[in-house]
Nucleic acid binder design. Structure first.
Lengths: 371, 371
DNA sequence: CTGTTAGCGCTTTCAC
DNA sequence: GTGAAAGCGCTAACAG
């Protein structure tokens, strides 16, 4: 998707561009006709006014005045004709589309559905349409998506769990497109951001393990370039600073996937004197941790206690009962959307706002005192 | 979202519209300026040709001829200027937007992420943008969403797990918008459809339970107005037809949610002589079934065997180990998208196509011989 | 308060 | 092969 300005099928199949002047596409076919669309002109005629007046009616929120009788005739005409303003035309003139872009890394992860849903509901509830992009956690693709959304003139973008932001944010900002970051903050506060308090949450989780009597506690963290993951790790370190040496507190870093957590956990447990508890930076990794325990014939929580972070739905299931920290994804999504829409509507503070939501410990059955 | 033709801020904050002529909104503010956008006119000037010629270059797939030298100059100009055709303008004239709508019931359900992801990847890979709508499984909202997408001139719509279709499909079809149904078929083949073989899958699951020695088998089904659910139930009935009376084969119907499955299962198990195995119409319900067992102090599979349908990710987890039937959501999504894009591009059969994918049994640890 | 007049950026006949 | 002109459906000054 590098050279966006290629022939009509701008966004042709990912396949190679082939030799110079290939001509594969046949967009030709059927000419979308359907029932004659009713336009603003039809409404104007039926109401006995001009398009301009109808437009003013449609944009009356802009503060146009209008004779009640005219207003009423237009209203009636619109209703009779079942008129719908064409969003494309509107977008073309106003350069605003009542559309919000949502960029996520990968919807399949246990963590997103709740977040995406809340964002979807919030945008839709405000009359905006949601455009979805999935980056696969690849910064390059993320930028492609952001560019594509910018060209489509979305009014704003929710960046969920961005990796790094410099390019994206710069690009959007230059084009006057509003931005909000959800669930992952960045080292610098470059845009409105809504996250959960990772540091406090991690401390609570680790303290819980200590309160149970654990002393050999390990940590499986996410990539440290991701700030919330770094914060969680730091929380782990702060709460274990007084404990013995590094040997007692092994830490690993893994991709935030089930497989990532599984592999890292195996490495951590398959040693002489394994830890009695592990704190994971995400529930997804913790689920992998559970698999690793099963792989090694260890029982949770008897042989090892497991704690995660996020509170994904499946953690509640019997047979899982994952002790975790609630990231309150739904509220994060909602609040992020609110912030974004506020900016889109022109209010909003001059400076970026950071909202850090409290993180609550949720104790279930995957943690218990060490043997 | 009923009256779409309301004032400009068609999608004002959910808050009340207040007294008659309130004037709260101030869209006024910042006038989205940004760096002067480069248009086809700029390209034309730089290349020393007219907009028309540039347009022909852009649409060369339509089969326009052009002098190689001109072609080259235009190509260079586009590159130098980093020109991107404005999709809105293009959409306005061509009445096609390289956009696909995706309508799901509720992304939060365990089943969707995989499906949505595959659709997302497939559309994006073909250069289309995905617009997401979530109906909450409410037919009225579903229609609202479909209408909104139609107004935005999406080229096609993927309807995932529609409930009933008459209105939606009629509406879209009238407007020449292509349609494909994924994961749920309808009694009548009204549009291209991709589903898994529910009947065969259900039979395989039930046969598996019988092979293990179960005779008192229950079924927790989804609403029978949903064809795949009806098929799964029918599969259950066919495979148990020779067994004792109805008392041995209780069946319940529930909403396809964890809670739905949980409640239904409790009802089924909390009796004199409970079944020794339960076949669920969906994994989501089966997870609820697992919770119900825990609630009642029953152990799976020792006291009761549990089998589901869909093969959601969490089913693999140790502690869950759900025996199920694979719905192959990813492939269903992919194939549905392919079918849709084919129609959008003007190929595609005259009549609707039905693709029924094979359903494969996946045996895990939630099923075992009865005691 | 309402109408006139220009476009927004692109496509598309129809000439040349 | 390329250009001129009209128009997609709407908004936005500016008049009156």
């Amino acid at each position: 998707m590098r050279d966006d300005a290629k022939p009509s099928d701008d966004g042709a199949p990912a396949a190679g561009d082939g030799p110079a002047g290939d001509g594969e596409v046949r967009r030709s076919g059927r000419v979308r006709t359907g029932p004659a669309r009713v336009t603003i002109k039809d409404v104007a005629e039926r109401a006995g006014v001009t398009k301009a007046t109808v437009s003013k009616y449609l944009n009356r929120a802009h503060g146009y005045a209008m004779a009640p009788s005219t207003r009423e005739r237009i209203r009636a005409a619109i209703q009779d004709l079942d008129f719908q303003p064409n969003p494309l035309a509107r977008g073309l003139t106003r350069s605003a589309t009542t559309t919000i872009g949502l960029v996520v890394a990968d919807i399949r992860s246990q963590f997103y559905p709740e977040l995406v849903h809340s964002i979807q509901v919030a945008t839709e509830g405000a009359g905006y349409t949601l455009v979805l992009g999935s980056s696969g956690d690849d910064p390059a693709r993320e930028l492609d998506i952001v560019r594509s959304m910018a060209h489509r003139r979305v009014d704003g973008v929710v960046l969920v769990a961005v990796r790094s932001a410099s390019d994206n944010i710069e690009y959007l900002r230059q084009r006057g497109i509003q931005i909000v970051l959800a669930s992952r903050d960045l080292p610098e506060l470059v845009a409105d951001t809504v996250v959960v308090d990772s540091l406090a949450g991690a401390r609570a989780a680790v303290r819980h393990l200590r309160d149970l009597g654990h002393r050999r506690i390990a940590h499986v963290g996410g990539e440290l370039t991701v700030k919330p993951f770094a914060d969680r790790r730091r929380g782990f370190e702060l709460e274990t600073a007084d404990l013995a040496g590094r040997a007692e507190l092994p830490a690993a870093t893994a991709a935030s996937t089930i497989e990532g957590g599984r592999a890292a956990t195996r490495g951590l447990l398959d040693v002489e004197r394994p830890p009695t508890a592990i704190f994971f930076a995400t529930d997804t990794m913790a689920l992998g941790g559970l698999m690793a325990c099963a792989d090694l014939g260890l029982e949770v929580p008897r042989d090892v206690s497991i704690a995660g972070f996020d509170n994904v739905t499946v953690g509640e299931l019997p047979g899982i009962g994952l002790t975790t920290v609630d990231s309150d994804a739904a509220r994060v999504g909602e609040q992020a959307t609110e912030l974004l829409l506020r900016r889109v509507l022109g209010s909003g503070d001059a400076d970026p706002v950071l909202i850090t939501r409290p993180a609550e410990l949720v104790v279930r059955t995957s943690t218990a005192p060490p043997r």
